[in-house]
Nucleic acid binder design. Structure first.
Length: 157
DNA sequence: GCCAACGTTGGC
DNA sequence: GCCAACGTTGGC
């Protein structure tokens, strides 16, 4: 079992949106980066857990935990003319982009902010989120990092 | 709104 | 294959 972190802009799709989705489940569509695609397609397995991270907002940080409930399959939004994720170069016979389905496990008791994570940069060394210039929207999280981050949830700030 | 950092594109 | 130009991400 592996751990991950998934970024989403709350103005586009927030944890509230996920909670309001049927079965609190959504397809993680619209990823258009090859490195992230490879992880979605090849590495994320049913039962894996991921932090749900809000980016590009007032308080960037981790707000919940989701579980992978369906493994990588073609992202059909790439074939849909008019979709904001349409990619004319993705051939349905050889799909370029992939997605997984995730289900909300729970919200965190509070947002664990990026600023707070940075304060633990030493323990979280190697976490791509904290690396300069990192823009990956899907990234692996070491089990030790996962544990440390979760321990912050109920700790004094 | 600014801008640094990055990935992708396309000319050569 | 190189690399400049461009578009995007995302924190601040």
């Amino acid at each position: 079992m592996r751990y991950w972190l998934l970024k989403s802009e709350p103005s586009t799709f927030s944890i509230d949106d996920l909670a309001a989705s049927p079965h609190a489940t959504t397809s993680w569509d619209g990823v258009r980066n090859y490195q992230a695609r490879n992880m979605l397609r090849d590495q994320m397995k049913k039962g894996d857990l991921a932090f749900f991270y809000h980016s590009s907002c007032d308080e960037p940080g981790i707000v919940g935990i989701v579980e992978v409930v369906k493994e990588g399959y073609p992202d059909h939004t790439a074939f849909e003319r008019g979709s904001r994720y349409y990619d004319p170069d993705s051939d349905p016979a050889a799909p370029r982009w992939y997605m997984v389905d995730v289900k909300l496990k729970r919200r965190l008791a509070r947002t664990i902010t990026l600023a707070e994570l940075r304060r633990h940069a030493k323990e979280l060394a190697g976490l791509p989120l904290l690396q300069k210039g990192n823009r990956l929207s899907v990234m692996p999280v070491d089990p030790s990092h996962w544990k440390l981050i979760l321990s912050l949830e109920h700790a004094a700030r």
